[in-house]
């Protein structure tokens, strides 16, 4: 009874509050508000009853997921954790790789990641013959990854190059040729495949030179490729051309020396080697040049 009276009072007051701009509220509005207020507890009760099984179901699920054991995959690596700051030298790793302990050899292969590709690759290739599967597989996977990265770049650039608007793009030609050159230079491909790769690089460089015959960068790269292909005379001509187009003579000295040596012009070779600036060249050439510096003294 009390609920009925309260509902009637609420139904009378609510239209006045909610719709105060109506002077004479309609009786239907009174009935509407009365019914709403009268049945709210019933609706609430129905809602509550319906909610109980849902809540129970979810709480059971929660209980399961709150299990303290989270069995997931065993790996959750963070690559950001730094090791002791250690510099790895090629020789250190080669010595480490000579160890009889396979764990030491495996560690040497991991550490080769800190070497330059051209220093790491001979070590990785050597490790391909290791008796221990883990070492062989790791070396192979690291070599394959290096090669895949370059190959992907070549394929993407070749696709771009095939479009007509890019057919005269010097940078693309140079990039494709450089990537092929890198495959051969750092030793990722060998033998016949190396020759094939070098010839492909040569093809792209020559294509670029058709449109930009006086580009020193293209000439220099072509000369290096020709040298690697053992076309000494052609290489010499291209190095000369690159020099005339502005490439620093000092930078070209090791190449001139190599050609002279292969042409059996030993006195010229000696002279060229002694002119090499020991501080401005790569460690390998520098070591060689140092020997000839001493010879000349």
């Amino acid at each position: 009874m009390l609920h009925t009276i309260s509902c009637a009072v609420a139904a009378h007051l609510l239209p006045n509050i909610i719709a105060s701009n109506y002077n004479e509220p309609h009786w239907k509005v009174f009935v509407f508000f009365f019914l709403i207020t009268y049945f709210v507890p019933v609706l609430g009760l129905i809602g509550l009853i319906l909610a109980i099984p849902i809540v129970l179901y979810h709480s059971r699920l929660d209980k399961k997921t709150r299990n303290p054991i989270n069995l997931t995959n065993i790996r959750n690596i963070s690559t950001s954790k730094p090791e002791k700051n250690k510099n790895y030298h090629t020789l250190d790793l080669y010595n480490k790789y000579k160890s009889k302990d396979s764990n030491q050899r495996l560690q040497a292969i991991y550490n080769s990641l800190k070497l330059k590709d051209q220093d790491a690759i001979p070590l990785l290739r050597m490790a391909l013959g290791d008796q221990v599967d883990e070492i062989r597989l790791l070396s192979y996977a690291l070599l394959d990854r290096k090669e895949s990265i370059i190959n992907k770049r070549i394929n993407n650039n070749k696709k771009k190059f095939d479009k007509i608007e890019n057919s005269k793009n010097k940078e693309l030609c140079q990039q494709i040729a450089s990537d092929y050159w890198e495959l051969a230079y750092i030793g990722l491909v060998q033998g016949e495949t190396q020759n094939y790769v070098l010839n492909t690089a040569r093809k792209y460089i020559e294509y670029g030179l058709k449109y930009y015959p006086n580009d020193p960068g293209l000439c220099f790269l072509l000369a290096q490729i020709l040298l690697q292909l053992k076309c000494f005379q052609q290489a010499l001509e291209q190095f000369k051309k690159a020099e005339n187009l502005g490439i620093d003579y000092k930078k070209l000295l090791p190449y001139y020396a190599e050609i002279a040596f292969n042409n059996k012009e030993y006195s010229k070779f000696k002279q060229l080697m002694s002119n090499i600036d020991l501080h401005a060249t790569s460690p390998k050439v520098s070591a060689l040049a140092q020997f000839w510096h001493q010879e000349n003294q």
Partner: peptide
């Protein structure tokens, strides 16, 4: 997994990877 995740330049190789 190490091969897939490791970045050559940004971090040092871990012990045994």
């Amino acid at each position: 997994i190490f091969i897939k995740e490791h970045s050559d330049l940004l971090s040092d190789p871990l012990d045994m990877g």
